[in-house]
């Protein structure tokens, strides 16, 4: 990888109380990022990580159209690779370099991966789940694509605060957990609010012919949870860390199956 580009155009994106500084020599791209992450911007004085971004077009040596993500660690350096980007990140130095296509979509994907790695070290994770705050508690609605994450978000009463309709951000908070808003969105096409709340219940979504909440065995909850945690690194030690984090989460958090009809009445059974 070549020498990192430097430039004066910085932006600091803070998600889940993890500020990440992005620096690009391209003023226009900085503005695009500012627009993409509006609501999640902060000053960069306390950034956990700093990335220099080098925009490249065309993507000369970035391979074919394969969208498979590769994430690996060697000698304390994380290497992230997809057809539209290459990135390196020195964990100890907190510095990284990104070479990517000139689209925020690429930066967005890199940020998701970076946050999965940041959270893995502290017992948290990103989860395929919609999330919102209601009555001071965060509710999570997890499921694969098509399970109803965006639908449940769209049907939410006016007194709920949307955290995300697609990717939820979970951090340890002492012996409990806290859910944070993210700019990562799904079909709803709007970011969550930049706020957080103690985690209440995680619901695993299933579409059905009635609205009902059922308890599920912890073993099933663990299996479903692991299926929905975002994790990209093929690193055996980190897989063990994620497994342990998931197990601890299952032991501490209330989890149920929510079968629902896609209309607003579902919210009358959610407690």
């Amino acid at each position: 990888m070549t020498t990192p580009a430097t430039g004066a155009h910085e932006i600091c994106v803070e998600i889940g109380s993890h500020p990440v500084l992005l620096r690009t020599p391209d003023h226009t791209y900085r503005e695009r990022l500012a627009n993409r992450y509006a609501g999640f911007l902060t000053d960069g004085s306390h950034a956990d990580l700093k990335f220099d971004i080098d925009l490249v077009a065309p993507l000369d040596d970035m391979g074919d159209d394969d969208v498979e993500i590769e994430v690996e660690a060697r000698s304390g350096i994380w290497r992230l690779r997809r057809s539209d980007f290459r990135a390196e990140w020195d964990c100890r130095a907190g510095r990284g370099y990104i070479r990517q296509a000139p689209t925020p979509y690429s930066t967005d994907s890199i940020l998701r991966i970076v946050h999965t790695l940041l959270l893995a070290g502290e017992g948290g994770f990103l989860l395929h789940a919609a999330s919102c705050i209601r009555n001071g508690r965060a509710l999570l609605f997890s499921g694969v694509s098509g399970a109803g994450k965006t639908t449940i978000s769209r049907l939410a009463p006016a007194d709920t605060t949307l955290l995300s309709d697609e990717i939820s951000y979970i951090r340890r908070d002492g012996t409990a957990y806290r859910a944070f808003g993210t700019p990562f969105f799904g079909e709803l096409a709007r970011p969550g609010d930049n706020c957080s709340a103690p985690l209440g219940t995680l619901f695993f979504l299933e579409k059905g012919f009635e609205n009902k909440i059922e308890a599920i065995p912890k073993s099933e909850a663990l299996r479903k949870l692991l299926r929905n945690i975002l994790f990209f690194a093929e690193d055996p030690d980190l897989v063990k860390v994620i497994f342990r984090s998931a197990w601890e989460f299952v032991e501490r958090v209330s989890m149920s199956r929510l079968t629902f009809l896609p209309d607003e009445r579902v919210w009358s059974v959610i407690r």
């Binding site: 663990l222 692991l226 093929e234 897989v239 497994f243 342990r244 299952v250």
Partner: peptide, 20 residues
């Protein structure tokens, strides 16, 4: 591997391919 006894069942995950 990573393994835990949970609810009377042993949950085992391969750390190399995440098979559960």
């Amino acid at each position: 591997i990573a393994s835990r006894l949970l609810g009377g069942e042993m949950m085992v995950m391969s750390a190399t391919d995440s098979t559960f």
